[in-house]
Amino acid sequence: MKLLVCVKQVPDSEGHLSINQEGSWVTYEGKTAFRMNRFDEFAIEEALLIRDHISHDKQTSINAVSVGPPRTSLTLKKAMAMGADEGIHILWDQNLYMSPFDTASLIASYAKDKAYDMILTGVMAEDDMHCLVGQFIAEILGYPCATSVIHQEIINGGSQLSVEREIESGRRECLRLNLPAVLTIQSGINTPRYPSLSNVIRARDQKIITMDAENLQTLKKREELVSLSYPEPSSKGFFLDGTQREKAQTLLRILHEKSFI
């Protein structure tokens, strides 16, 4: 089996985000920390579990792919430290927004002649929150796709997948897909592992294959981000101020007035 896992590097969004002068994207300051999109950690872990499960198939390989600027290679290293065999960096050296359709088009263009049996993505990127890239990759490649996957199992001698997807109110939709297929993985499907020290050391020496986004064939643009803004502060709420103790006292007074306590 050949597995491809799409991983995105996202900024840790605790703290203030500044919009650039043109209002077109976020400017990351030196102190911004970047990490792997959390949903993608679950996707990598699921690929590793599949590999463990079919350990009789010595040919199983897991590739991790990411589209982004040079710093993205750290996220690919993390994927390799978790256990992926190879990292593929589609280099796009601009700190700007890339639409999910464009991202999918780049990944599909890379993947199309590589005969992957399964392509895994996270259900959503924590920064742009589209929930689209996996489905677009599937459509471009003509593969079946299941989104928000919370359970999967290879069946029928490796020709099909039995899948459960999480829908509203915790209900699950059970379906069967032919391989090759695309799965978008929902958090909670597994417990992502911490990289072992030996894997971290191994990953350090492993090379990442880098290719320029411009050399990949892409499809015509579909939608654009015109501008970013800060949401208007809500009119109904207000912040309690003062010291910690004063805030606690104010809160208790409010709770008492509203007869909660």
């Binding site: 900024p11 969004s13 985000l17 919009i19 976020v26 927004y97 924590e126 920064d127 742009d128 929150m129 939608e223 654009e224 981000l225 015109v226 501008s227 970013l228 803004s229 800060y230 949401p231």
Partner: peptide
């Protein structure tokens, strides 16, 4: 976007 910290005009 970003868990509601920013709004994007598409």
């Amino acid at each position: 976007m970003f868990n509601g910290k920013l709004h994007a005009e598409m």
